[in-house]
């Protein structure tokens, strides 16, 4: 009798699209006027960029189960690619230039992801961490030394400031949606199975190398897009913004939020980006707060704040529609 009511996939999709549109319209109106200070507007954009960085690293860390330490390297590749492209195409219609720049940034970063991924993913755990750490540093040093193209240490200046609220948060929504759909497809299941048990995945006929490199390239692709947005947000790029600590910051967000939880990454990215600005007076203690937060979370909730939980509004509505039913076995299936 009491059948579990479900929302059809197309309706679920519609609900989410409406949510995104409301969010972007409200956000554009808020940030467009004078109702917010310049600092809070900048903070909101920064949060958007870090959300993309965190959810993209979450692919490699949370879903694939590896520990790359060079995420800022991919971000740098994307940032410089987009900045150079935008500077060269100032006479192109702006929207076209923005979109092309973002795509190019993502693709070049993904190519770097594949180049570093093929050798690095033969290794595991700490070895992979060291290789990717080295890669991040190589990128940074290369940017410093290729000063003819990248501006070197003095920086690449006068990058067009294309990163409006609309651009940044459309990218955030697109990134989250893309990752969600990929991870719920057959390919996503293959990536998860590698994290769960490599030997079992191998014996099921999952092509390990292919999916590891694919996950790594996806992770790099979205990091490249975040880098491009960062370039369009700052208006100038300096190699020191992409050092080892930048990679660690992103990793901290993923670990704190819960490896494998997209919502966790989003929340942690938001909190950790906003925290230093909110606690301006305590800025000197930022790293101390970071460390203490991490230690506390790791002691009391080693799987991160949200573990592997992921949020779905249609899912919540479904639960509400079925509130009179006893939570039966069908619920456990979700």
């Amino acid at each position: 009798m009491n059948e579990y009511k479900r929302i059809s996939p197309s309706k679920r999709f519609l609900i989410n699209i409406v949510l995104v549109i409301i969010f972007i319209v409200v956000g554009t109106l808020l940030t467009g006027g004078d109702s917010l200070s310049r600092a809070s507007r900048a903070l909101i954009l920064q949060i958007g960029i870090y959300v993309i960085l965190a959810v993209s690293l979450n692919i490699a860390t949370g879903y694939l189960g590896q520990l790359p330490l060079g995420h800022a390297g991919f971000m740098a590749v994307g940032a410089y690619s987009a900045a150079l492209f935008w500077k060269a195409t100032l006479n192109m219609p702006t929207p076209v230039s923005i979109v092309l720049g973002l795509i190019i940034a993502g693709l070049i970063a993904a190519v770097f992801g594949i180049i570093i991924g093929i050798p690095a993913l033969r290794l595991k755990g700490d070895y992979l961490a060291i290789i990717t750490l080295g890669f991040g540093e190589i990128i940074r040093i290369a940017i410093i030394n290729l000063s003819g193209i990248t501006g070197g240490t003095p920086g690449l200046l006068n990058v067009p400031k294309y990163s409006s609220f609309l651009v940044v948060f459309l990218c955030v929504a697109a990134t989250i949606a893309a990752i969600h759909f990929i991870m719920h497809s057959r390919h996503g299941r293959a990536i998860l199975s590698i994290r769960e048990n490599e030997i079992a995945a191998d014996s099921c006929g999952v092509n390990l190398t292919y999916y590891k490199v694919l996950a790594f390239a996806m992770s790099a692709f979205f990091a490249g897009i975040a880098g491009a947005l960062y370039a369009g947000f700052q208006g100038s790029l300096f190699p020191k913004s992409f050092d080892f600590m930048a990679s660690i910051n992103i990793l901290v967000m993923v670990v704190l939020g819960g490896m494998g939880s997209m919502l966790g990454s989003v929340i942690a990215a938001t909190v950790l980006t906003a925290l230093p600005l909110v606690l301006q007076a305590l800025a000197a203690y930022r790293m101390v707060i970071y460390s203490i937060l991490l230690i506390i979370v790791m002691i009391f909730k080693p799987s991160g704040l949200l573990g592997r939980y992921d949020f779905s509004l249609p899912g919540l509505i479904e639960k509400w529609m079925n509130r009179k039913n006893k939570p039966g076995k069908e619920v456990a299936n979700e």
């Binding site: 998860l192 199975s193 048990n197 995945a201 014996s203 592997r308």
Partner: peptide, 14 residues
């Protein structure tokens, strides 16, 4: 070596 965090059905699907 089962996929410990997946359900029985999901394991079989794999």
């Amino acid at each position: 070596r089962v996929f410990a965090h997946l359900t029985v059905e999901e394991n079989l699907e794999m």
